[in-house]
Amino acid sequence: MGTLFEDLGAQFQQSFIEADRWQRYLDGIKISFLVTLGALCIGIILGILVAVIRTLHDQQKGSDRNILLRLLNSICQIYTTVIRGTPMMVQLLIMGFVIFKTSRNLVGVAILSLGINSGAYTAEIIRSGIMSIDPGQMEAGRSLGMDYITVMKDIIIPQAIKNILPALGNELITLFKDTSLVTVIGLTDLTKAAQQIQAKTYQAFMPYIGIAIMYLVVVMILTKLLGILEKRMRQSDRR
């Protein structure tokens, strides 16, 4: 029994302390955060864009749809179909080794890949949020002489976001965990850091259990923060 603990202690020493290896986890998790944040921004912007185009298209009756709107709607549909129909890792491999094969900016490639992926899912979440808002809100806004975009931006989207916050939070958490896939294009995120340390020390237990705990703790903190945000956004319902 004693030897087991001594053994674990030694492994811990090797995996985290020796040669300042903790620094590598820290650098890795910074990259993971950076990719999450960047991808989140791209995902939300793409998501809102696609959701608004598809809603606008669906709300208009057959004869009023103009060519441009139909074209945009088709592009959006192809986008969601392709992105949701192929594995994230395959998308990363294609982005890293086919489309941007000469790029040195791995962080940029990772952010773009995950952002484009996240956008397809976020779009569907936001679309469901927009559809959950009473059509009377749009009618009231338009009857006051405001244009479609203004009503969307000031009235519909803010209410929709509030309704879909739990689903968006889920998407954020998925996104954060999916950053571990960027190892396949050679970016040194948290997972890659653990792999590199395992290669040095020939020990798998401590690095991998270690990063699993780190991912878990971050997700738990994110969940807590989202809960607080949700509560604050609900305040206007009660006052």
Binding site: D134, G136, Q137, E139, A140, G141, S143, L144, G145, I155, P158, Q159, K162, S236, D237
Partner: peptide, 15 residues
């Protein structure tokens, strides 16, 4: 902008 409308269900903006 020159034609105001009042609805059955008010349609105030709750946010």
């Amino acid at each position: 902008r020159k034609m105001g409308m009042v609805f059955q269900h008010f349609n105030l903006f709750p946010n």
